[in-house]
């Protein structure tokens, strides 16, 4: 039963991701991405990590994606953007990246399967309690750092996204 759910989720995630990278409409792509993230959340649950699954849904699929939606809407590209994407996604643009990535994938898989002797081991359930204990004991310093990073991101994003008249006026030579 778990296996079936896993495979369905894995297939959903893969297909949705593929749709993201090939989609021509930004909003569609974003929706595909959300699907993919949700599928991965399911997989997290299967791997006995419900806390991670929850975070995935809340933070990733929720907060971050909303942020992106806002930006897409602010850019307000419309149909012209779709045509533009169509032109950029000509088939010949795909060969090189696909080849490179395929090689990389093969290598990764080779590496993953080269240490395959312990594959029969069980998966363990790790609940939020254990994660919380680890976070606030062993990783406390890292947590502080992460909070600072978030603060910096907040301030930086605010500063960068401000709409400044003067700067736009000198747009041509802001190269």
């Amino acid at each position: 039963m778990t296996a079936v759910i896993f495979y369905i989720s894995a297939a959903t995630a893969t297909v949705a991701t593929a749709m993201v990278i090939s989609s021509r409409n930004a909003v569609h792509a974003l929706l595909h991405l959300i699907v993919s993230l949700l599928a991965i959340a399911v997989i997290f649950t299967l791997y006995g990590a419900p806390f991670a699954a929850a975070l995935e849904v809340i933070v990733y699929a929720g907060a971050i994606m909303v942020l992106m939606i806002f930006v897409i809407m602010m850019l307000n590209q419309g149909d012209a953007a779709v045509d533009q994407e169509k032109a950029w996604l000509a088939p010949k643009n795909w060969y090189g990246p696909a080849l490179l990535t395929a090689i990389l994938l093969v290598q990764l898989l080779l590496l993953i399967f080269s240490g395959a002797e312990e594959s029969a081991q069980r998966i363990h359930y790790i609940g939020p309690t254990e994660v919380g204990i680890a976070l606030f004991s062993h990783y406390i310093l890292a947590v502080e750092l992460a909070s600072m990073l978030l603060l910096a991101g907040l301030v930086g994003a605010f500063h960068l996204a401000r709409h400044k008249r003067i700067e736009t006026s000198e747009a041509p030579d802001a190269d």
């Binding site: 090189g96 990246p97 490179l100 990389l104 290598q107 990764l108 590496l111 080269s114």
Partner: peptide, 16 residues
């Protein structure tokens, strides 16, 4: 990014 990928490929190839 492509160069980056190539570098990763080479690095992994060495590992393999």
């Amino acid at each position: 990014i492509a160069s980056f990928t190539c570098g990763a490929i080479i690095f992994l190839a060495l590992l393999v």
